[in-house]
Nucleic acid binder design. Structure first.
Lengths: 346, 346
DNA sequence: GTGAAAGCGCTAACAA
DNA sequence: TTGTTAGCGCTTTCAC
């Protein structure tokens, strides 16, 4: 992979008949030049289609105006809009964004962190706070400026921009209990290396435990972030436990469960109530609409950008940001039915 | 934004007691070193948490192993999985991916193209083939290796990896005609700077025109890529034209239309059939499931990576890739009702 | 197998 | 206001 013959500062300087320093100034502090030279230089730049070489600039100035974000997956509406907001906020400050994905693999995450740092990312946005010691060692040793998002956990001296997954999930489960549901089940995300999904599970467990006698969390099954995985989990749960409400760790699993319910002729919410988490577009589109927890994606992206830039500008006066979530009551959550519970499906 | 004090090659060399050249060799062609020095060097690298500085490397070697992708928006399921596949294919070849978004603004797109090229992207993935002369000028002048995706249009000598939007949309409309629908309407995407959505519109128009007498495309309204925009467009269409089938330029608009239909008590497909495009997760989750056109997202991402890498390796033996689409018949498309058409809604 | 040194494109002192 | 020049971190000849 060889780069095409690329115009350099020197080429522009030659064409414009000025020194390389003047070109550099035209790019970085145009007010220091007379308008005539500036125009002459601009003409030369346009003619050659010149763009400054990032490597050279980074090398010379020790500045990159670039930050990186490392997310589990792009095909995940859960991160998409937050990241979009993050990048827009950065853009308006003239900072570029590099994005890399991990596929939920911690090894890949470390590789990507190194790759982005090598590429000159001044700071990083990371998702969640759960990663191997090895990864934190690298971050600490290199003093990589970073903020963790989608969580309210950060290591000492580090910063998060996120929300309380545990409390939000606990609140959601309480809504079901308040409507008379006593047999709850949960479709959780894969909890390995994922503090967010673990926190959501713990929140549901706490709600049931605190409610006390009479309420029971019949089962927690873990499923990948896919519609069909949610559907399968639903089948599994309904064929054995027959809860009256199912709390899901995210909307995709919940939507998958609802699809399967429709196929099995199980009515939502008459036979079983379903609650999601995230409030992505899916939630308002399913029938009945999905009760869920709205996550402040846009605010999180914006705030993460603000905090990260503040962190890069100076290390003082920065603090973590805890954002509120909101329970969105919709048709998929109804009162516990007074029907006699059905037998498990055969 | 200043970089932290960062270990350099020289630091590693000093610690390991060898020359900088050896460190470079350890990184790039380890087989040229004895295993003992290699191990000593690796230990020093680990101890310092060293990662090669990308800028320095790019400068010295004129090689970056990095490509860029520029997409309209990340919060758009339509691009997400294709991009994910693109990045995975690149990753397995040791090539990094930089991502930037345009928000559908051609000015921003040009800026992002320049930014990625400056950052050392050896090649680019672009969406669609419709961009201002100015942008193509830059690409031509700098000879930026690129492939355009999601389209089957490419300029002479350039390459696409995509599918035939026009034919696919035409086919979808014909399905409706074949089921007896004669009054069609379309909810299109915004057609400015978007050859994909224009092609889809043209395909529907062609199907109706070719069908001849008796079939009519009552109206085409354009809407932003949002659920509520689809809902609004649906209201507008149904309050005036009362078609029996609506072809939508994408699934998000179609899902929005279905939401509104549900709210207005209009039955799908009994009162009106709805067809989407893209087959994102949404489509199988709505009630009734959405008939749509399946776009080969994963294959497109993978193939785009293959073509781009081939292009970078050598300019010969590369060709465009046309991928098939597939019409997915689902419940939202039914036979034209024999009911007397309702009056327009009030 | 290993080291010395030139030079990639750029910025920032400093000089004029 | 503009030019000259050293040097950023790395790779890559060319010697040894």
């Amino acid at each position: 992979m060889n780069r095409k013959s690329t115009p350099t500062l020197a080429d522009v300087a030659r064409l414009a008949g000025v020194s390389t320093a003047s070109i550099s100034r035209a790019l970085n502090s145009p007010e220091k030049l007379t308008s005539t030279t500036r125009e002459r230089i601009q003409a030369a730049i346009d003619e050659l289609g010149y763009t400054p070489n990032f490597g050279g600039r980074a090398l010379a100035s020790n500045r990159t105006e670039t930050v990186g974000a490392i997310i589990p997956s792009m095909s995940n509406a859960m991160f998409a809009s937050g990241l979009q907001a993050f990048q827009e906020a950065l853009s308006s400050e003239g900072v570029n964004l590099l994005v890399a994905t991990t596929g939920f693999d911690p090894e890949v995450e470390l590789r990507q962190i190194k790759a982005l740092v090598s590429h000159g990312a001044d700071g990083l946005l990371l998702i969640g706070n759960d990663r191997p010691e090895k990864t934190w060692d690298f971050i600490d040793k290199r003093q990589v400026a970073h903020v963790v998002a989608w969580t309210n956990q950060a290591r000492p001296g580090q910063f998060f921009v996120g929300f309380d997954n545990e409390a939000a999930a606990c609140d959601a489960a309480r809504r079901a209990l308040a409507l008379g549901h006593r047999r709850l089940a949960m479709i959780g995300g894969l909890s390995v290396n994922n503090d967010r999904t673990r926190a959501r599970r713990d929140g549901v467990m706490r709600a049931v435990a605190e409610f006390g006698e009479g309420a029971v969390l019949t089962t927690v099954v873990e499923a990948e972030y896919r519609l069909d995985a949610g559907a399968e989990a639903f089948s599994r749960i309904m064929s054995t436990q027959r809860p009256s409400a199912i709390v899901c760790a995210n909307d995709v699993l919940a939507a998958g469960a609802m699809m399967r319910a429709r196929d099995l002729g199980i009515d939502v919410p008459e036979d079983v109530s379903i609650i999601g988490f995230d409030d992505i577009g899916l939630a308002s589109v399913v029938t009945p609409p999905l009760a869920t927890v709205r996550v402040p994606q846009l605010a999180m992206g914006r705030e993460a950008a603000r905090v990260l830039l503040a962190l890069l500008a100076s290390t003082s006066g920065v603090s973590s940001v805890l954002l509120p979530t909101e329970f969105i009551a919709r048709g998929s959550l109804g009162p516990a039915s007074r029907r006699v519970p059905n037998r498990p499906l055969t």
